[in-house]
Amino acid sequence: MKDKLARNISIYRKEQGLTQEELAKLLGISFQAVSKWENAQTMPDITLLPALSTILEVSVDKLLGYVAQDKRITIYEDEYQTEDYYWGTEPNTACYQVLQLIPPTKPLKLLDIGCGEGKDAVFFARNGYEVDAFDVTNAGIEKTRRLADRTGVHVNVFKADLLEFRLDTHYDIIFSSGVLHYMKPEYRADIFDNYKRFTNENGMHVFNVFVNKPFIAPPPEKETNAYPWQSGQLLTYYHDWLIRDSAEIVFDCNSSGIPHQHAMTTMVAQKITTSP
């Protein structure tokens, strides 16, 4: 609990635009105390939790990590309620790139961030990877389990929020498709640093992210929790890794029933910390 509380205090403090000193002043304590909370060296006195909850505008339960979500993050919770698979069951083309670049000729552990209904996670499991996957939607998690069962493979799927979840175990591959626009700009450095630290030597990150272009109209879906990316931004978080592939594509989409286009940056980066 201590680590989760430490992480949540830091996340929600930043969400409110407060420094450690400002939060400490509002609580009538020293900023060193807040620093120790966020570094998981100590925990707040129980008498401070109601005031801390009020200032950070989250429930005590959520602050302590007992509630994964208390508001809807994505429109797809509703879309995934149907029997049909909203995105289909064919894997993203980037999945084949993973197979080519880092095939499971030995046991490899893979994480699918924002797995949706599970088509990519199940593809990886079917091809021999040890797969963990998470999504913020209950319906998506249930459909991932069903697809895995139907395919005869195991995927360790669980519920988590991209903004709150941090790795505490190492992976060989971290994969995410069509999800990183939910990452608030002020959290990106912290989240990518966490992902990079918990990636094994020679491991890879395979990500894509929607980017804004003046010649492409905004998508018809009105997602209030989506945040813009610009061309090249994703690569700046990987200046110290080997960029195995990077491209920008424009593609047609009909996901909402309204034909539209997206621009997307794709990236494959590899962790190399020792000399060849």
Rank of each mutant, 00 (worst) to 15 (best):
D135P: 02
K4F: 09
D84R: 15
D112E: 10
T236E: 08
H260R: 11
K271L: 04
Q20N: 10
V67M: 13
A125F: 07
E79C: 03
H154G: 00
D193Y: 09
R145G: 05
A121E: 01
Y129G: 02
I249M: 11
H181L: 06
Q41K: 15
D161L: 08
L26V: 05
V153I: 05
G17F: 05
V268M: 14
V211G: 03
V60A: 12
Y76C: 01
L167G: 06
E221A: 14
Y195M: 14
N39D: 06
D161R: 04
F251G: 07
T89V: 13
T42W: 09
L99V: 06
V250I: 09
L99W: 04
N127Y: 15
E79V: 04
L111K: 04
V206F: 11
K36S: 08
D149R: 06
D112P: 03
H260S: 14
M183I: 07
L234T: 00
E15R: 13
T224Q: 11
C253S: 11
D149E: 13
M204P: 00
V131M: 07
Y12V: 04
F192D: 00
N92P: 03
V136P: 02
F251D: 12
W37M: 09
A217F: 09
H154N: 01
R145N: 15
K62Q: 15
I55G: 02
L242M: 05
A269C: 05
A269H: 03
P103S: 10
G65E: 08
P107S: 05
Y171S: 01
V131N: 00
N39A: 11
K25I: 05
N39L: 10
F215D: 10
T266I: 12
E21Y: 13
L52K: 02
D168S: 12
D135V: 02
R146I: 02
K222H: 03
N202F: 13
E90S: 12
H154Y: 09
T137G: 03
M264V: 13
K62Y: 11
E248V: 06
V250W: 02
T273K: 13
